[in-house]
């Protein structure tokens, strides 16, 4: 069983970090993981994206054309990648910056205004953590407590911003659960 998650957004939105934290938690859970960045001129100012692969066996090709899920943090990312997602996957949409939803009907859409939630938590810079925890809660790919511990560890050197990110994390989980309840 292999799951691939594409994270995409503007450079500076922290999506590479969100992806790394997800991979890290999955690794701690005992899975094989790979974090595959796109690197190149587009890193600078344009769309930044990377793919996390989580698998129960050795990961072969690091080239993923059709990911299982997509976390889209801005409109260009959604437009660029929504059609690549495998049927049955999740498309996560940051509705603070994406005024539309996907036309895909064969996927689950999770629409979360992550920037607004992050601002409520204290800083828009925590938007990537809101997105991470909301997506993780919805996809159930990793244990949430473990993931939260990974987030905390990541910010160990910047103790000041740990409460902000913990709050952002909880808010993300909460909204994903509310969405779950609504759908059910």
């Amino acid at each position: 069983m292999q799951t691939e998650i594409k994270f995409a957004g503007f450079g500076g939105q922290g999506i590479l970090l969100s992806a790394k934290l997800l991979a890290y938690a999955a690794m701690k859970q005992g899975s094989f993981v790979a974090w595959i960045p796109s690197y190149g001129p587009e890193m600078r100012g344009g769309t930044a994206y990377c793919t996390v692969v989580i698998s129960d066996r050795l990961i072969g090709s690091p080239i993923i054309k059709n990911p299982t899920h997509l976390v889209a943090m801005n409109l260009p990312s959604l437009e660029k990648f929504e059609n690549d997602v495998k049927p049955g996957g999740i498309i996560f949409i940051n509705s603070s910056l994406i005024p539309v939803t996907s036309k895909r009907t064969d996927v689950t859409q999770l629409v979360v205004p992550v920037n607004d939630i992050a601002i409520k938590a204290g800083s828009v810079r925590a938007a990537n953590i809101v997105a991470l925890s909301a997506f993780a809660a919805k996809s159930e790919l990793v244990d949430l407590d473990l993931l939260k511990a990974c987030v905390k560890e990541e910010f160990a050197a910047k103790a000041k911003i740990i409460p902000l990110n913990m709050d952002a994390f909880d808010r993300g989980v909460e909204i994903a659960r509310a969405d779950q309840a609504q759908t059910a």
């Binding site: 790979a34 595959i36 960045p37 690091p62």
Partner: peptide, 10 residues
Amino acid sequence: DGLIGQMMEP
């Protein structure tokens, strides 16, 4: 190669 340099793995 560039991918091995840039990718993260355990």
